[in-house]
């Protein structure tokens, strides 16, 4: 398996409805370098343009200005090696396919492998997320948290070199979220892909990341980037009790909720 790749955004801007009266500037000058194998999280308030930012990084949406490069190569469409975990995971699963066939969807493009080999390969990923017993169910027969695990298994089956995660844990309950955090960290430590997460959840950002980029409200720019410096492997009980965790949490919450004073 190849190692993670780098992602560089240079002066990326995005205006919706450009040139029309309702023109709206979502992103104002985003520059960010994600290192290979790094877990980087972008935090920002809701509606500040996180999904927009991530879709541009994935080549799913065109930027108004600036450049995106993956491993130094310009991105002008979804590049190979990149996988995107959508915020709306229930909507990203194919309801007419069983769970295992949904995972297979990720690898069918590459396929000289026989049907059986493909199934076996994908079963490994379902086992990783603890859903092997549900392989032949349909997504709509599973709970929200389980559906999200299917989406994660499918993302990993594509063997991404970089995984983009758009608030993937925001619509499951708190306990499920912790389990998913553990799982994603373990998988990331195992497989060394680059991870770029966007979220409005400060605890989640601190818990998972090597580095955190703070996004201002709209038109958004990156206010600062912070190294978390927390030891790995992270632990869902002890890590949040570390003084550094509390310090980061305090600082980030303060900077995300304080009234706007960063005149552009």
């Amino acid at each position: 398996m190849q190692d993670g790749c780098t992602l560089a955004l240079d002066g990326v801007t995005k205006s919706f409805s450009q040139g029309r009266p309702e023109e709206m500037m979502a992103l104002a000058d985003i520059s960010l370098d994600v290192a290979a194998g790094e877990f980087l999280t972008v935090v920002g308030p809701s509606g500040c343009g996180k999904s927009t930012f991530l879709q541009i990084a994935a080549g799913l949406m065109e930027a108004t200005g600036g450049a995106v490069a993956l491993d130094g190569r310009p991105v002008d469409g979804p590049p190979g090696g990149l996988v995107y975990l959508f915020q709306q995971y229930t909507r990203s699963l194919l309801p007419w396919r069983t769970v295992i066939r949904n995972v297979e969807f990720a690898v069918e493009g590459r396929g000289r492998a026989s049907r059986r080999e493909r199934r076996e390969f994908c079963m490994e990923f379902l086992e990783m997320v603890g859903l092997a017993d549900f392989a032949d169910r349909y997504p709509w027969q599973l709970s929200g948290g389980m559906q999200q695990r299917v989406a994660i298994a499918r993302a990993l089956a594509a063997e991404p070199r970089i995984l983009l995660l758009d608030e993937p844990f925001s619509s499951v309950d708190a306990l499920t979220r912790m389990e998913l955090h553990d799982m994603i960290l373990k998988l990331w430590e195992d497989r060394r892909f680059t991870a770029l997460l966007v979220t409005h959840d400060v605890d989640e950002a601190v818990m998972l990341s090597d580095r955190i980029a703070v996004l201002s409200s709209r038109p958004s720019r990156i206010v600062e980037t912070i190294e978390t410096g927390l030891p790995r492997p992270r632990d869902r009980i002890t890590t949040p009790e570390l003084p550094r965790f509390l310090e980061l949490r305090h600082y980030l919450l303060e900077s995300l909720t304080k009234p706007k004073d960063h005149a552009a």
Binding site: A58, L82, Q88, R91, S92, L94, A106, R110
Partner: peptide
Amino acid sequence: VLVETARTFGY
């Protein structure tokens, strides 16, 4: 979202 999912998987 379905279409974009497919696009990111190289379809």
